[in-house]
Design a protein around this nucleic acid. Sequence first.
DNA 1: TGTCTATTTGAGAGCGCTCTCACTATACCA
DNA 2: TGGTATAGTGAGAGCGCTCTCAAATAGACA
Lengths: 351, 351
Amino acid sequence: MKESLDLESIARKAGVSRSTVSRVINDSPNVSEQTRQRVLAIIEQENFHPNAAARALVKRRTDILGVVIPTSSNVFLSDNNYYPLILAGLNDAIRQLDYAMLMWLGEVTQDDQHLMRKLSNPHLTDGLIFVSLPSDHPLYAKLGRLRQPFVMIDRPFTDVESTNYVSVDNVRAAEIATEHLIRLGRRRIAHITGDMTITDAYDRLTGYKNALRAAGLPVDDSLIIESTFNRETGYYAMQRLLPHKPDALFAASDTVAAGALQAVLEAGLRVPDDLSIVGFDDVDVATQVTPPLTTVRQPIRAKGEAAARLLVDLVNHRVSAPQHVILPTELVIRRSCGATATTSREVMSAQ
Amino acid sequence: MKESLDLESIARKAGVSRSTVSRVINDSPNVSEQTRQRVLAIIEQENFHPNAAARALVKRRTDILGVVIPTSSNVFLSDNNYYPLILAGLNDAIRQLDYAMLMWLGEVTQDDQHLMRKLSNPHLTDGLIFVSLPSDHPLYAKLGRLRQPFVMIDRPFTDVESTNYVSVDNVRAAEIATEHLIRLGRRRIAHITGDMTITDAYDRLTGYKNALRAAGLPVDDSLIIESTFNRETGYYAMQRLLPHKPDALFAASDTVAAGALQAVLEAGLRVPDDLSIVGFDDVDVATQVTPPLTTVRQPIRAKGEAAARLLVDLVNHRVSAPQHVILPTELVIRRSCGATATTSREVMSAQ
DNA sequence: TGTCTATTTGAGAGCGCTCTCACTATACCA
DNA sequence: TGGTATAGTGAGAGCGCTCTCAAATAGACA
């Protein structure tokens, strides 16, 4: 099936040397147009493809970028299309930059020796992108020994300054979302967090607290419930929150907000009349629920693209580490918060 | 960053030959326990990783499988989590079999030379998996020249017999869904198709028509509308269908059904009283809408797993092509069809 | 103690490419 | 006409591994 066909055989057929064929393949300018055409014709005719391994061996680069999404496949699948959007962004940029994308999904356990080896093998990929690497992840410990450049999507927990990452200003965005609720007259604002091993969730909680304090409102622990980024936990979290009579909710993601909304509605309360809701992300579900969610829009796809671009720059030494890319967010007003949408949007640019 | 560290240097430090280090790395039994331990210690100490390219060059395999999802990223993202589920299945099996997954997402145009080259390069991946390759896709023409084994998820349009694929019996499943509606007394059953360049959509339409004919009902073209696998097109398709007074709908996917449901509700009709709905897939959205959807459940994740396993078997010559894997489906009765759920489930095994 | 077998080790070729260096052919100028 | 610059080409080494084959060593037995 994979019959042997190498530069040498193409060279023979074209009546040139291996070197010349190599030049043609690599678009070297030092080949006469005539020779180039002849060689190209033979290559096409023979359906020849240069051996990627041989090339990688001498060039010391594979033109492959590794993408690691260590999130449990449960979350990967359930948080609406947050991860698929990240993936689409990564994919688009990686393809455009003419790299290939090697992907690992799901949990990596300490004892997953094979995978760990592959991941840390500096000869398989030219660089790595980690999406939402949780603080308690075994890979965290290995990061230091990594022999290749890497970029994280979301702020890392440790070594923040020295690590390359792409994120949004979650703290400020959460402050703005919460301030919005406060401005609407809400005083008992609850918060359902995301997975607290992910900085996004951590920072949004911080922003929420900041805003309450700044407004002179108490931070009431009974109004804060930890969950993970999915609809179901959002639903149950809200059920537990309801007895404490919140008049608003800032949810760590739209999926969580959607689950919470359902719980509120089932309890016979009206949204936004009895309770305002603000989500985060602005993914599909935000507009598919009734009432549609006021939410903090973040450029999810662009996060993927930016991370891929940054990594390629790093691989090619076009920038020097560490780099921190902070993308802007925007508060999108819809019906779930109860704001009179005279100005339908409140724009915020973080950084 | 990638300092040169090869077998030779490890060998020197351990006082053995390159061959012996190679044996240790490849778990060859012909190494004394003592030597193995010594070499392993040095490898760990030096943080050594064998060069994948060099290994691939001589072994003529990369242990990488390519996954191609040529669907526009629009559909990839919008059809609920169908594609992410396929991806999760592929990922799990590929990881378990100790391969790595190279992924290409999104449309591939004819002139995307770079990508076409990479895809057909038999030295980069050991095999390829195509997910829902549309009939009009430029890759279709290249399939014959491919120098590596490949598996398709979903029945191919052409060369069905000679192609390796994993699918469900969409025709039979659609027949059962439609028969169910007929049995409930529905007579004007509409159908909203999926993307007709994908066999799934094509076969479901066939099954729908088969069932009508078998029951002696007319196949009314005004009750059939073509759409793509997403919520929005489902919504608009249903709006166009409504004037023709259907009393039931069989939708090509749950996402489509969800969009259609919204249109029905907005038109002031009741589901299932005025109109029964049956979807396909049984993804999250099926239970998130009100009323929850009666639908044909297909083992999406298992399709990915089966495809990966089959490909690995093919790569290792453990089975001979062509192989056709048909997975079972199941009609799941929920509230959208109006069936009295005495038996809450009607089980069907295709093949 | 020597012979035979089994186990463990090493030497060396070669996988298919790139890249440097040297060489040839052509063009240009004085 | 000779000298020099330049475009185009080829030879050959070497990237880091695996794998075959032969050699060395150890173990078993008479």
